[in-house]
Every structure is written in structure tokens, then in C-alpha cells.
């Protein structure tokens, strides 16, 4: 892979994973219904997540302009593994055998759909 494609892919991975983890951090504040949204809006996590996804959108478009779509989808599948590891690291989510199997099956499925 040329350095520019690799750099863009790495950025997509960082923004996508960072966005998911920021959203998880945002959702953890106490509150119900509208109160929950008010509590999320005054903390940085939700906005950080939205910023990450905005950056990801632009980076993803740039990435797809240098690699074919099927290859792009293939490489973006690593995002699932990265979010899983991030969840364990930041929120103490358990990596059980069943969870790993489930995520592996979904990853393989997305690869096959993208390759078709």
C-alpha cells in the first residue's frame, strides 16, 4: 500500500474508534430522557465524538479516492477489533470467547458482502 493510502487508512481507524469510544464515554453520564441529553451536551465527550465522525467522513472519502471500495471495506473491518479492545481498555468490557467469536463472524460477513 502506498504511504498516502496507509496514512489515510490509519486516520480512518483512529477517528472511527475514537468516535465510538467518545460516544460510549458520553452515554455514561447519569440522567434519563432529555435530562440525559442535557448532561451529555455540557460535557466534551459527545462533541468530541461528533467531531471525530465529521473528520472520519472526510478521511473516508479521501481514502476511497485512492483505494477501490472493496479493499476499503476490507481494511475498515479492523475498526471492529479496535473498538472491542478500546472498550476493554477504557471501560473494562469483558472479552469473552463468545464475544470474540461473534465479532469475528460479523467481520468475516462484512468482508464477504464487500468483496461480492
Amino acid at each position: 500500500m502506498p504511504p498516502i493510502s496507509f496514512a489515510l487508512w490509519l486516520l480512518v481507524l483512529v477517528f472511527d474508534t475514537g468516535g465510538q469510544l467518545a460516544f460510549k464515554a458520553a452515554s455514561g453520564v447519569p440522567g434519563e430522557g432529555l435530562g440525559h441529553w442535557r448532561a451529555m451536551a455540557v460535557r466534551p465527550w459527545l462533541w468530541l465524538g461528533i467531531a471525530a465522525f465529521t473528520c472520519e467522513f472526510v478521511t473516508w472519502l479521501a481514502f476511497l479516492s485512492v483505494v477501490p471500495l472493496a479493499e476499503g471495506v476490507l481494511l475498515s473491518c479492523l475498526n471492529m477489533a479496535a473498538v472491542m479492545l478500546g472498550g476493554r481498555w477504557l471501560f473494562g468490557e469483558r472479552l469473552t470467547a463468545r464475544r470474540l467469536l461473534g465479532v469475528a463472524l460479523i467481520t468475516l460477513g462484512v468482508v464477504l458482502v464487500g468483496a461480492g
Binding site: 465510538q20 473498538v83 472498550g87 468490557e93
Partner: peptide
């Protein structure tokens, strides 16, 4: 949990 939720 965010890992399984993102995958699902």
C-alpha cells in the same frame, strides 16, 4: 458495551 454494540 461499545465493542459488541458497534459490531451489532
Amino acid at each position: 458495551p461499545v465493542g459488541p454494540a458497534f459490531a451489532a
